[in-house]
Amino acid sequence: MWDTIIINPMTNLLLWIYDVLGHGPHMFGLAIILFTILIKAVTWPLNASQVKGAQAMQELNNDKEWQEIQKKYAKDREKLAQEQMRIYKEKGINPFASCLPTLIQFPIIIGLYQSITRALSITPFDMLKLARTIYPFQNVENIIPLNSTFLWMDLGRPEGIFQSIFHPSFLPNGFPLLALIVALTTYVQSKLTMPTSSNPNDQSAQMSNMMSIYMPLLLGWFALNFASGIAIYFITSNLLGIIQYAATGRANWSNLLPGSKNK
């Protein structure tokens, strides 16, 4: 079911782009980038809805009336919840507007990861699974196996550069440049989209702060340990997210420096 609805269509789309590009060296990396752009374009309304929902929640957190209600019912959780629902209703806020699009995108991200790893099948068993995935219209004989070279990387392996001069035992693949770029772009994206809050008790702002530290580390770790094709996806996705948010005019560039106070 998961394969039929998510993995197979995504893998075939990825392979189709690769075939159209000419299936030579570097083309699978380009295919991943174009594929990510396409996925981002399709999910653009969801992202926009997420940004809008987060903004509405943030405006509420800065609302004087809401802050007074929070103080007034600080020790009465039940009453506070009732007041919160009342205010949501009055201001037309959907509390799930910011998290629902993320939940919907989650299977897309998982599917994308699985599609890339399936397309880069490195064992006979993986190749056999891939063969069963490909739709009849694909020019399958020509495109298999994929050329996994992209710039200095093998997209099926964790990335590292300067391996000949930089190879301490704890860095067998060389200097992890891509992982650092993944961590950096994730950090930039999360900081730019971080809600600004004048409310010192704003838990969502505190949570965002924590996430802006943990997410870059987590995705950086993924980039270190998994096929570099996934890192290409992360970087492309992060850059597109930054562009999308900057296009709304709400990007808070002053948030980028660690320790800076939200404005």
């Binding site: 068993f125 590292g160 860095l171 067998p172 693949n173 650092l180 870059p216 580390l217 950086g220």
Partner: peptide, 21 residues
């Protein structure tokens, strides 16, 4: 941030083959 990436990279492996007949 930098150190975390470097330390975590100690866990990184090569292109591994974990399943086949």
């Amino acid at each position: 941030l930098v150190l975390g990436s470097l330390i975590l990279s100690a866990c990184s492996g090569n292109r591994t083959v974990s399943n086949n007949w």
